[in-house]
Design a protein around this nucleic acid. Sequence first.
DNA 1: GTCAACTTTCTTGTATACAATATTAAGGTG
DNA 2: CACCTTAATATTGTATACAAGAAAGTTGAC
Lengths: 215, 215
Amino acid sequence: MDIRRADQIAASLEQLVFSGEFRDGERLDELRLAEQFHVSRTPIREALQVLVTSGLAEQVPRRGVFIRQPGPVELMEMFETMAEIEAVCGRLAAMRITDEDLEALTAANDRCLQAARESDPDGYYAENEMFHQIIYRAAANSFLEKQALHLQNRLKAYRRIQLRFRGRLDQSMSEHSKILHALKEGNAEKAASVLRSHVAIQGEKFHQLVASLKR
Amino acid sequence: MDIRRADQIAASLEQLVFSGEFRDGERLDELRLAEQFHVSRTPIREALQVLVTSGLAEQVPRRGVFIRQPGPVELMEMFETMAEIEAVCGRLAAMRITDEDLEALTAANDRCLQAARESDPDGYYAENEMFHQIIYRAAANSFLEKQALHLQNRLKAYRRIQLRFRGRLDQSMSEHSKILHALKEGNAEKAASVLRSHVAIQGEKFHQLVASLKR
DNA sequence: GTCAACTTTCTTGTATACAATATTAAGGTG
DNA sequence: CACCTTAATATTGTATACAAGAAAGTTGAC
């Protein structure tokens, strides 16, 4: 029940940025956006502030706000950070996970397996996301969980790409099994290291893809 | 050279929130702030958006924005997250730190020692901050570094308190030595675990203090 | 044709005006 | 006196108006 038009616009813009609708360095013209959303500049400007604050765009005084799509280096850094955060979540989850979450995790993993068997990348993608989110939750630190969710969302578009690699689905599934196993037996360090490499490998795959496209 | 009044106001408000000038749940009256800063409501509103986006305040549509000071639980979660992030920085830094940074770190540690000898908590506080920031930088991941700096800043006010504990300065110094040593010999896991407990203990000290104040 | 100074136009930043909703006060009813 | 209804007031959200700086276009000298 959002009455604030500005917030809706901010959410829309955020999605557009995530989906790569805007080029890097592109200026977000207030007037253009205003007529595009059928509002005045005021709510547009408030929405732009949100983008800038969350790091999706950059603001140059008296010049405007510009989209800041992460380059290859920053993306790799983000993937590495995600990997480390997931490792942390895994470490904490191994010590704190409840039976309910362990059950939910098993169920999510089964649905992943199902999607993988049906060679359904989209389905796998969705269920995989859930699998990881359960781990964030199981770390029992809502502040950390929020950070993890935020970064997961930020990397969404890039994570999706690497799933297309041949054999990646099966590999990912076998990693999931190891994660689940480590969490079940409460092996914190094992859970951390497996999760770390599980996510880090996504970054590497993505890197490979980017490199291959440059030729 | 910031021409935008709104940004300056946002920074000011942020500092006021960090320093605990506002009570939890307090409403930030736009009109009051406007005359306080001698501007119209427009830049105030943009500044408030920044606060809301960075999680320092909450916005209820048609009601206003309210300060959201973290409670004991959230603070503990933030300290734990900080501890884990520092551990990650330490782990990466152990593998990547340059000779220059190792030197800078040693120097910063010496200045900490100096301040500790002179029983100068404020000096120690400042140098200690620098010590940790060098580690963030040495992790060679600017995205992660930014996150670490942000959280460090957010916890500033709370970290300061626990330094008053008797004997904490000496204890902190001996922890620093261990950290430095682990980084020097490139022992990633050691660096991570020492840093983790070094920061985590701050959370615990803070917790003790809060608990003692409640009586 | 190139470059520089100037002028025009465009765009952002801030102030003010208006609209819509929430809060508070007042008044009436049982 | 409590409670509901309703009017007054205050506050947020959005639109518009104005000010100031940046970008673009023009003119003229060489």
